[in-house]
């Protein structure tokens, strides 16, 4: 009997803690000051003109993230000029994943022609606040009077394998809706990704 009670307490504690982690749609996302691949520090508040942001937790070493690199570049090309720039954040511990260290990030950004900041979540303080669990993991934020409000959480689109076979472009739909002052229809989606690496 005691074992059952302990088990139930443990279970409920586990459930509660997972619910507390990270943002839900409607929450205000924290700003940050993270180092970019060019050595400069980047914050959301630097973007005075921005109407919002496409924050992408991504990395070099995850095949899913790699599969989406070109599509992340395309998102920035399409939406930076509409004041919804891409901000990419690399959340992995680089001792665990040396392939995600600053040098490797610089090399990848250069090779793939990243047009957006590729920031290191040094000390891994930011991704847990957002509640990112994997790469790639996208948060679309809208700049409001209250702050940067989370409007969409999840995948970039519905086909990791083949960009040409995508049926629903989740992130584009969300940003398009926000740009035209509409409600985002699909606010959360799930996709497989690589767990964020910690020590």
């Amino acid at each position: 009997m005691i074992a059952v009670v302990i088990c139930m307490v443990t279970l409920s504690a586990f459930t509660m803690s997972t619910e507390d982690e990270g943002y839900s749609v409607g929450d205000i996302a924290t700003d940050f000051k993270l180092e970019n691949i060019d050595g400069k520090m980047v914050s959301l508040s630097d973007y005075e003109q921005a109407k919002g942001f496409i924050v992408v937790f991504t990395c070099n070493t995850c095949p899913y993230a790699v599969a989406y690199e070109d599509r992340i570049v395309a998102l920035d090309k399409k939406y930076a000029s509409k004041d919804y720039p891409v901000i990419a954040i690399m959340p992995n511990d680089t001792d665990v994943m040396p392939g995600d260290n600053m040098k490797a990030m610089q090399a990848r950004a250069k090779a793939k022609g990243f047009t957006f900041p590729y920031l290191m979540d040094k000390g891994q303080k930011i991704y847990p606040q957002y509640g990112a669990t994997k790469t790639p993991h996208v948060y679309v934020l809208e700049k409001t009077r209250k702050g940067n409000e989370v409007k969409y959480i999840g995948a970039i689109d519905d086909n990791y394998k083949d960009a040409a076979a995508v049926k629903t472009k989740y992130v584009e739909n969300a940003v398009d809706a926000l740009l035209s002052g509409k409600e985002v229809e699909q606010k959360e989606t799930r996709a497989i990704g690589c767990s964020i690496k910690v020590k």
């Binding site: 669990t133 994997k134 995948a155 799930r190 996709a191 497989i192 990704g193 964020i196």
Partner: peptide
């Protein structure tokens, strides 16, 4: 199965999709 947005929450409602 490409339809991850359907089967991930169907396998467990709290699964974000990260593996393992």
């Amino acid at each position: 199965d490409i339809d991850q947005n359907t089967w991930i929450p169907a396998i467990d409602k709290d699964w974000s999709g990260a593996i393992p």
